[in-house]
Structures are given as structure tokens and as C-alpha cells.
Design a binder for these strands. Structure first.
Lengths: 183, 183
DNA sequence: AGATGAGGTTAACGATTGTTAACCTCCTAG
DNA sequence: CTAGGAGGTTAACAATCGTTAACCTCATCT
């Protein structure tokens, strides 16, 4: 597990942003949590905004790339949907801070970063929407989008609860998500 | 619709907090959006923190009071759960900004306010948990809590999507929530 | 051996923030 | 009629913020 300083900064910053919000964290806080101090961050990033931007881009890329791969190797739509559910649950349980900032901090991005992150997020959602619509002919595109967003909300609730073991939480969320997507 | 200045401040502040986060909004922003300017807010609240605190307390009280009343007038557990689902959906669709700040700004409260809000939120969750457990004997308390939190996440996803009409969104969310709670 | 660049440091800046102070209007109760 | 409080205003404050500048310290390469 070779962690570069850049990754360390992105990781600790994401955790702090998730706890206190983007504007609630100072560059001194981030540096201090990394063992360095304040302005040293500018050796790795263009500014505080850039840290958030790179973080959100990285998250969106990871979600999209794995989503693409898992659906590509699935043989049926049922398998594809199951793979998407498993993947999203795995990510949400493994990286609660990243899930939190991805869903709440995108308003603090600059115009360029927002466009890029938005495009990646939309691509990821589209994978879900396409898969769901192959199994649910009764849903038009906007309806399917709403259903998928609601499913994300269900799975992404993990950071707010997490009182039972990770494995039982994973299977519980999986069952609920499948049921909700069929309703 | 008699709206006192105090309510107006709470309302507009909640909207701004939902959009940009607590630390992303200045007292000047809040006052300006109310047609008054900055320091005038201190005639109605003790400070910026106090605005957030009163807002969150009000939201939690509304959710709890109506949750209590609707379950009290229900004759069966099935009816009670349906009433809770309907109420939460009605609130989330009608006041997306309040839902957003209630679930994400609680970390910015002072110790006293946090305790008070937390107690109200727990009481509301407990109504749900008790009702769910009467219908789902297989769930112990922590499991039921996780299931309820996931259902909140599903319903609270409304502010992030909202592309279809409010009535079809309401029925769609209701169906999904019921299915998820039975899974 | 010596130049170099990567990755730190502290000091200082201008801007913005929450908050207080001092002052000005009205509306209204006695 | 008039004292006073409720609800505004602007000016000014100390603190904190993101950012830049200037400087230091070593590995590493020629």
C-alpha cells in the first residue's frame, strides 16, 4: 500500500469535508491532519478548490469505470443490475466519506470542475438507467432516473447509520435495493 | 399566510444553507435575501449559529409531532406504517431544503443544540422502528434502525432528482419504500 | 563536488467573516 | 403628548481565511 502524499491529502481532506463541509475546513486543518502545515498543500494542488475538484473527479471516475466493467462482463440484465447494486454497496460501505462529499459538495466546485464531475456522474447514472429499463419496460427515462436516484439514496444512507456489522448491512441493503427497484 | 419576520429569516436561511452549506452563507447573505441587511438579524436571533439551531429544532419538532399524531390515530400497524411513509414523503417533497439541512448540517450545531436535535430525531426514528418491528418480527432493534435509516435515505433523495411530477414522484416513492421495508 | 528541483518552513498580505456599538425611526401604551 | 421599545441602519472591530513570497534542506544526477 504505497500512499503518495497527494493521495494522503485527498483522503484526509475528503474525510474532513465530509465531517464539517468544504467551507468548514481550512487549509491549515487539512495540512495539519497530514502532518504538514497549511501552505505546503500548494506544492501539490493549485488551491483549496482544486483539492475538492480532484477529489470529486477521482470518485466519479472510479464509480463509472467499475460500473462499466461490471456491466460489460455480465451476461444478462439481471446479472448486470445485481453487479451494479453490489458495486455501489461495496463502495458506499468502504468509503463513506467519499459518498458523502460526492452527493453534497458538488455545488462548491468551479464551473469547469462542476461540468466535468456532472458529466461523469450522469454517465454512471445512465448505466443504471439503461440496465433498469431493460428489466422494467413500464418506466420511461425520467421515471427510471428518479427510481435510480432513490436507490442511490437508500444505499448512500450507510454513513448515517452503520450500527450493524458491515456484512449484514451489505446484504440488508442489497435486499432492500432489489425490492425497491422492482416495485 | 401571516409570515413573521422570524419565520421569513428561518425559511430563507434554510434555503441558503441547503444550497451552499452553513459556512458557505454569510449573515449578510441571509439578511440581504430577506430585504434587510446583515446585523439586523441580531434583533431576532442570538447569532448565526442560533439561526441554524432554531431551524433544525423546528424541523425535528414538526416531523416528530406529526409522526406521533398520525400513528396515534391509526388502527393497525399496517395503517400506522403507511401513514408514516405518506407523511415523510409529503414533508420531503414539500420542503426539500429542510430535509437537506436536517441530514447534513447537524455537525455545525453547538453542544446543547446538537443534544436537543438529536433527541428529537431519535424519538422520530423510534416511532418508525417500533412500527416496523410490529410488522417485522425478524428484525432486532439495530437492524430495524438500519432499515428505517435506509428508507429515509430513499425518500430523502427527492431534492437530488425531482424531474417527474410531484404526484407521480410521491406514489413512486411510496411504492419503493413499502417494498424496501418488506424485503 | 556542485547544480537542481522537489517538498517543506514561517511571515505577511488582503479579503471576508461574525459580532458589537452607536444611532435613527416609527408605532403604540399610559 | 410623550416615553419607550421594536426593528432597522451604518461604521468599526478582531479573527480567520486562502494565497503568495522568500527562504531552507536534502536527495539525486551529471
Amino acid at each position: 500500500m504505497t500512499t503518495t502524499r497527494r493521495e494522503q491529502i485527498l483522503d484526509t481532506a475528503a474525510t474532513l469535508f465530509a465531517e464539517r463541509g468544504f467551507h468548514g475546513v481550512s487549509v491549515h486543518d487539512i495540512g495539519s491532519a497530514c502532518g504538514i502545515s497549511g501552505p505546503a498543500l500548494y506544492k501539490h494542488f493549485a488551491g483549496k478548490d482544486d483539492i475538492l475538484t480532484q477529489s470529486l473527479i477521482g470518485i466519479s471516475q472510479r464509480l463509472l469505470a467499475e460500473g462499466r466493467q461490471r456491466t460489460a462482463t455480465a451476461e444478462t440484465s439481471e446479472q448486470a443490475l445485481a453487479a451494479l447494486i453490489d458495486w455501489h454497496i461495496e463502495f458506499a460501505l468502504g468509503h463513506p466519506a467519499l459518498i458523502v462529499i460526492q452527493e453534497r459538495e458538488w455545488a462548491n466546485l468551479g464551473a469547469d470542475g462542476r461540468r466535468e464531475v456532472r458529466a461523469l456522474q450522469l454517465a454512471y447514472i445512465d448505466i443504471w438507467v439503461d440496465t433498469v429499463r431493460q428489466l422494467r419496460g413500464d418506466l420511461d427515462a425520467p421515471e427510471a432516473r428518479a427510481v435510480v436516484q432513490a436507490t442511490f439514496g437508500l444505499i448512500n444512507s450507510t454513513p448515517h447509520s452503520a450500527r450493524i456489522s458491515e456484512s449484514s448491512m451489505a446484504s440488508r441493503l442489497g435486499r432492500m435495493a432489489r425490492a425497491a427497484l422492482q416495485a
